[in-house]
């Protein structure tokens, strides 16, 4: 079965990102496909590579990057929500005159249409939020 995942809260503050990661891992282990994880609302904060948790804590951002690379998952960050919260890739940095970018490996910034498209193409959309 093809799953789409929606994450609407940032990492660490809420369990949502951790739950979503555990759900994805379990789904993949059972042979399902995770086509896309869409990050919306404060969920876009899952995508900054400047995240630096203490060494004995999990690195949620890296966990997403690694999972995406290993299983070919499309990690999409909503552009409008990202702009509000200061998440930028190289293109967005140039367009908006910012002096750097902070998007982590494996994430891409795109429009909300990617969420609707996931809804159309996936068998299920599972939301993790606050």
């Amino acid at each position: 079965m093809k799953f789409g995942i929606l994450v609407t809260e940032g990492p660490y503050q809420h369990q949502a990102s951790d739950s979503a990661l555990q759900f994805c891992r379990a789904a993949l282990e059972k042979g399902h496909e995770v086509m896309r994880v869409f990050f919306y609302n404060d969920g876009v904060n899952n995508s900054t590579r400047y995240t630096t948790p203490p060494q004995d804590d999990r690195n949620i951002v890296n966990s997403w990057s690694e999972l995406a690379e290993k299983h070919g998952i499309d990690l999409v960050v909503c552009v409008a929500a990202a702009q509000r919260r200061g998440i930028v890739d190289e293109g967005e940095a140039q367009r908006n005159g910012k002096d750097g970018n902070n998007i982590a490996e494996g994430f891409r910034i795109s429009g909300l249409g990617q969420l609707v498209e996931a809804g159309i193409q996936c068998d299920r959309i599972v939301t993790f939020g606050d």
Binding site: A80, A81, G111, L112, G113, L115, E117, I120
Partner: peptide, 17 residues
């Protein structure tokens, strides 16, 4: 949430769902 929900709704209209 209310505002960003509305933003998704507006985008979804373009997909004729």
């Amino acid at each position: 949430y209310a505002l960003e929900s509305l933003e998704v709704v507006l985008i979804s209209a373009a997909f004729d769902q």
